[in-house]
Design a protein around this nucleic acid. Structure first.
Ligand SMILES: [Mn+2]
Ligand SMILES: [Mn+2]
Ligand SMILES: [Zn+2]
Ligand SMILES: [Zn+2]
Lengths: 150, 150
DNA sequence: ATTTTTATCAAGAACTATTCTAAATAATAA
DNA sequence: TTATTATTTAGAATAGTTCTTGATAAAAAT
């Protein structure tokens, strides 16, 4: 989904009154080439390698525009800085409490997390967000190993 | 869970090195008597009615202490101010995009939202958070009614 | 009971992610 | 081209939260 078979970034337009600028394209490309859910500052640093003149405020503007148009998702975990995700498939996020990484978690085929909830009658659900917190496989293993050394 | 049959607030201690002070008791009582997930500032205003001398910084300290001990939950929705919840049962939250209210959603009996996820092998799950966003029944109804008037 | 130690409180300063402001620049429309 | 509108940029402003520090209160030791 992030890249097509020719290796080119998917094209799209931003709709009436919105312009596809070089800054927005770079921000979009960085997200399509990242699966680690970078923060705005991390996106800024990555784009800066390609376009040294870009400003952090512009990265925020571009991220807002891309999120608003729906080609990028904003991911919030606790009170940490917002992260951004180019994966538009329905999915959840795993947040490691040790290394602070955020990884995608895919849904079991056909399963909807909302099916396990008693949603209030009459409510109109727009979307739902699922965040799992704990230790990622690497950190879980390294912490277990460290304990064995005692 | 929030109150026992005599109407008194549940007693507990905060563990080694932690003191149950009047400030902490008031903060705890406010949360036990609220089901609307107040922010720190809202808790501050409610406690201030009972103890005028309390400061916002102390409310933050007390909330941190109560969350740390596990008798209160911190609930984050998007980048909005943190909210606090006295309901320790596993449950999800519904966030209305119109009136900004946050309500508890209970889980279907025996259902676990994590069962619908392909959790990474070897990960150690501490907890998971489910937030549903949309329109609460009241707002969904009033917006539908408003549209009919056109 | 007095002293000592430790935890907590309170006021304000500091911090930080994000948003806002305003002037310059770039893209589109007329 | 000229006019209009959108975007970029740097820096100021904002807001929720955390930190600092001296005062106060609780617990422990004497
Ligand atoms: Mn993701
Ligand atoms: Mn709740
Ligand atoms: Zn990890
Ligand atoms: Zn509502």
């Amino acid at each position: 989904m992030s890249q097509n078979s020719t290796g080119n970034i998917k094209q799209f337009n931003l709709g009436e009154g919105h312009r596809m600028t070089p800054q927005r394209r770079f921000v979009y490309e960085v997200l399509m080439n990242s699966k680690d859910h970078p923060t705005a500052t991390e996106v800024f640093m990555r784009v800066k390698n390609k376009m040294d003149s870009i400003s952090l405020a512009t990265v925020y503007n571009c991220l807002d525009a891309l999120v608003g148009v729906g080609v990028v998702r904003q991911v919030n975990v606790d009170r940490e800085p917002s992260r951004y995700c180019g994966n538009l498939e329905p999915h959840a996020h795993f947040h490691c409490e040790n290394c602070a990484s955020v990884e995608d978690i895919s849904l079991k085929d056909g399963a909807k997390p909302s099916n396990s909830l008693k949603l209030p009658r009459g409510a109109k659900v727009e979307k739902f967000e699922v965040v799992v917190r704990g230790l990622c496989p690497e950190c879980a293993l390294s912490i277990k190993t460290k304990k064995q050394l005692n």
